[in-house]
Amino acid sequence: MQPLLSQACWDTLYMVGWSTLIAVVVGLPLGILLVLTDRGGLLHNAVLNKVIGQVVNIVRSMPFIILMVALMSFTRWIVGTTIGRDAAIVPLAVGAIPFFARLVETSVREVDGGLVEAVQSMGGNTWTVVRKVLVPESLPSLISATTTTVVAIIGYTAMAGTVGAGGLGDLAIRYGYQRFESQMMWIIVAILAIAIAVVQFAGDSGARVLHRRAGKGGEPFRFRKRAAFLPGGPVTADATATPGKTG
């Protein structure tokens, strides 16, 4: 049981790590682009805005398990196979990118337009505005968004077992559900609960430190429950792991 669990933990960590990285690297610019190309934005472009918005909506509306199947040929093209951990990262990342992009969009939209104007008045271009204003000023919020995304991805990975990627969720389903070994399932639930608590705590602390410095802190930080709006609805891992701390 021990080696099974440690392998599963490692698999989950591997998938979550890589897909979070990809989601942030692609989702951040995408989210910023959504703001910039919107009406009144610095790069106002109605067509581009609509296209990105629609793609984001379509991907987000797809249940993850279907997304995984739908992306099979794309996955094969990228990693050469549709089975295993690496193959699971592709749909995980693709599913998480629009999710994260929307969160980024919300965060960046909250940045005061006056700051953008100030930087423009100093002779800054759009890139300067993004680098010096939009990202640093929304950083606390972006960290929270990343936390939410990591938690969501941990939820997605439960389904990655379908393509033989392993991981904790897969183990829980195979042992807990298919073999009636409920002990294994509860251990995994506990591990997931702790993992998510740790991620949430780390993210909240980071966001709070930045918030306080910016003079917006003080109020208790609420736990976000955005994971409930994932494609495919509430996900097993998340649904079982959060009740203890939604309070």
């Binding site: 005061d112 006056g114 700051l115 104007e117 100030a118 423009q120 008045s121 100093m122 002779g123 800054g124 271009n125 010096k132 204003v133 640093p136 000023e137 950083l139 930045l210 410095r213 910016a214 003079g215 917006k216």
Partner: peptide, 20 residues
């Protein structure tokens, strides 16, 4: 943009970056 950098501007709500 170069011309703008030679014109200073101050704002009603200061518009300072809170992260800096």
């Amino acid at each position: 943009r170069e011309a703008r950098s030679r014109i200073g501007m101050v704002f009603q709500h200061f518009n300072l970056l809170s992260s800096r």
